[in-house]
């Protein structure tokens, strides 16, 4: 293997990513070539130096900052829709079936008794309004009895007559 060929392969050789045959050839060449040995060491050293550029830590609270961004970037109705969905999910996950049944039973019972109550009220009102009508009807009957006389009279002139209606009747 020539030096220019080896030089091209050394960086990959250092990563252990050469095929078996190529790796064997490079290894053989380096063992007998001072220049390529130097090249290999320089590459190794500079690669190692990169480790001096240390990692940085994310600014704390990056998860919650993300969710805030999400809620700001989405229209309110989508957020609302999702929140309602999530609330429903939470309810569903809690196995509240017995509670639901209880609530349903309570609701049905109260609707039923309310209906009874209203029916009762209606009946009472009907009875009450009947009395009133009867009274009015009684008054009307009296008026009807005097109808002919009232029709005959001139209102202004016969004012005194009205006062004497009862006596006229007799």
């Amino acid at each position: 293997m020539r030096c220019d060929q080896a030089k091209k392969l050394i960086p990959v050789y250092l990563d252990g990513e050469l095929g078996q045959e190529e790796a064997r050839l490079v290894k053989g060449h380096i063992a007998s070539c001072a220049a390529c040995q130097k090249e290999l060491h320089a590459l190794e050293r500079s690669w190692k130096m990169l480790g001096e550029w240390k990692n940085i830590d994310p600014a704390p609270g990056y998860v919650s900052r993300f969710w805030t961004k999400v809620s700001l970037e989405r229209p309110w109705y989508e957020t609302l829709g999702q929140e309602m969905g999530e609330a429903l999910d939470r309810l569903r996950r809690r196995r509240l079936a017995p509670v639901y049944v209880m609530v349903c039973v309570l609701l049905m019972t109260s609707i039923f008794s309310l209906r009874n109550y209203w029916q009762m009220r209606e009946a009472q009102e009907l009875a009450a309004s009947l009395d009133q009508e009867e009274l009015e009807m009684a008054a009307d009957v009296e008026l009807a009895e005097n109808f002919d006389i009232i029709q005959e009279m001139d209102f202004l002139e016969d004012l005194e007559v009205i006062e004497d209606l009862d006596s006229l009747e007799t």
Partner: peptide, 8 residues
């Protein structure tokens, strides 16, 4: 290869 060479 080229990147490593440049860095070196």
């Amino acid at each position: 290869s080229r990147g490593k060479e440049n860095l070196k």
